[in-house]
Amino acid sequence: MSFWDRLFGHQEAENRSKDVAKQRLQVVLVHDRTRIRPGLLDTIRDEIVSGISKHVEVDKGHVELSLASEGGQSRLVADIPLKVAGRPRQRPTAG
């Protein structure tokens, strides 16, 4: 950040509070619009996992379920990694 930016109060891109505001609004509005309490996502995830697990083996520790909003539409996005026999899934190294 240059001296002049500092002097005029220009902020670095990652520091802009409006970006935080926008990101927080997008999350809270998806929950408001769908009337899904944040805790309900956990319940839904557990039920999806148990449903799918009846047919294929799921890598339960890495299931991700989230709400997204795009162009006025809200969607539930699930990422469900499977455990495939004989070919162990390469786990990302911890860190």
Binding site: F8, H10, Q11, K18, D19, A21, K22, L25, Q26, L29
Partner: peptide
Amino acid sequence: MVQRGDMLDTQDVLDVLA
């Protein structure tokens, strides 16, 4: 405040509210 990134600008509000 918009110019220094401390207030949602018009486009931000429209993106969120559609």
